[in-house]
Design a binder for these strands. Structure first.
Length: 172
DNA sequence: TTAGTGATATCC
DNA sequence: GATATCACTAAA
């Protein structure tokens, strides 16, 4: 029986949660009971107000308020008016941390992942803990993790642009 | 390489 | 109210 990840898993530091999430399985249950499954193959950590790539670096606002909140909460963000990007909040309360689900085994790209799983803005503020619609399972799979600089944040400056907070499964 | 897209934040 | 910005994708 697969283990379902709970609050304690997400409450740790984003830099611990992000690599641990790689290889886990996202399970999305639709209205009609259909289950969509996809193994996570890539995540990125966003951590703290000093992280220029993190939304919270520009201050605590209505949008980023969630980042400061409860671990295990889903933060969905509409990017470029087209793509829903899904994050999960990690770390202790009042620390703006999150992990972005960057891509799954079957779909590369965060926009495609959320499209496949039928995630949209209505999931903003939902939680992975005790949620019937979406959860994350651990089937014991432990891939080797490759780290790399995050992508898409050229504006964040040389240091934050190059820090290796991107975690990729090598598929083994 | 570039266009498209819309919510959010910031500037009047 | 108006403009600038963006953790992207698809088309060319």
């Amino acid at each position: 029986m697969n283990k379902i990840l709970t609050y304690d898993f997400f409450r740790r530091d984003a830099l611990k949660v992000a690599p641990d999430l790689v290889g886990k399985i996202l399970v999305r249950t639709l209205e009609d009971g259909t289950e969509l499954r996809e193994r996570i193959s890539e995540t990125e950590a966003y951590r703290g107000e000093e992280d220029k790539g993190c939304h919270a670096s520009r201050g605590r606002t209505k949008r980023t308020e969630l980042l400061y909140g409860e671990s295990g909460v889903i933060y969905v963000y509409l990017c470029y008016g087209v793509h829903w990007l899904m994050n999960v909040i990690t770390g202790e309360k009042d620390q703006p941390q999150g992990v972005l689900f960057r891509c799954g085994e079957l779909h590369s790209g965060p926009g495609k992942l959320t499209k496949f799983l039928k995630i949209d803005g209505s999931f903003n503020g939902e939680s992975f803990c005790g949620n019937e619609k979406i959860r994350i399972e651990d089937d014991g799979f432990r891939p080797d993790i490759i780290t790399a600089p995050r992508v898409g944040i050229d504006y964040a400056g040389d240091y934050w642009k190059n820090v290796e907070w991107r975690f990729i499964s090598n598929g083994k």
